[in-house]
Design a protein around this nucleic acid. Structure first.
Ligand SMILES: [Zn+2]
Ligand SMILES: [Zn+2]
Ligand SMILES: [Zn+2]
Ligand SMILES: [Zn+2]
Lengths: 130, 130
DNA sequence: TATTATTTGCAACAATGTTGCGATAAAATT
DNA sequence: AATTTTATCGCAACATTGTTGCAAATAATA
């Protein structure tokens, strides 16, 4: 099952995630990597990390895509049911691990996955009242 | 405030929305329009319709962007707080006007907008059990 | 060290969206 | 109805994001 290799590029990407408190886009990762590897390689590494449940992919309201390290990879059943916050000011995306929405669905739908994203002002930007 | 003009292209786009029960992508709209106008014009019309609160924009898990006609444009306060359903089989996006998630936020966040998207199987695809 | 399968770089391509600008057409004014 | 004003359009060019094929490089293993 686990057949993905530990390459220098993959290690470098993981280090970038380790250093960051917020979710990162492909472009942001590339900038931090400083030509450690090709653009395409980053895409492929991210694909593998998502597949291996080490990282999860977040699609945002504005169409941007970001990735964040999972802090629940150890759990047997791996489900990304937490919410994400997207700051309108600093554009940072953070995982809200504790926020889980409750809702009532109409009949005849089978829900497999949910995506709950909230946007507004993050604590940092709220305090420096713009 | 209302300064957008009624052009033939805009009318054609609105007719396409009128005919559709589900949300539509730019590409889908373009196909239905049959060269009524340029690709760029459709983008600009959609921008205006979103601005005028006639249509709302939906960003999906898979990165695709779709648009749907608002059925609450008459309301004084115009907020898109309903959920959307994305079918994994037929890839149709439908507005779930009745589904509104409840949740508890950590302190120090100011929430302006929410996006709640559920994916799985729609009633149509669930019945034709694939 | 030799073997094998995964990963990488490169080039090329596709999809989606944006911008500038002169031409066109809708709406307001005369 | 003709004129003026200004939003809208078409076109071309560009930017960004993501994908694919294939030969070369590299990690895991035996
Ligand atoms: Zn912020
Ligand atoms: Zn997350
Ligand atoms: Zn379906
Ligand atoms: Zn909707």
């Amino acid at each position: 099952m686990k057949t993905t290799r530990n390459t220098t590029a993959k290690t470098a990407v993981l280090e970038v995630f380790e250093k960051s408190k917020t979710a990162l886009s492909h472009a942001e990762i590339q900038k931090q990597l400083n030509d450690v590897c090709d653009r395409v390689t980053i895409y492929r590494i991210l694909d593998r990390l998502v597949n291996d449940d080490i990282v999860h992919k977040i699609s945002n309201l504005d169409g941007t895509v970001k990735y964040a390290k999972c802090n629940h990879s150890h759990q047997r059943v791996h489900i990304h049911n937490h919410a994400h916050f997207s700051c309108e000011n600093c554009h940072e995306i953070t995982c809200l691990d504790t926020v889980k929405p409750s809702y009532i669905m109409p009949h005849n739908y089978k829900v497999n996955e949910i995506n709950f994203t909230l946007s507004g002002l993050c604590p940092k930007c709220l305090n420096s009242n713009i």
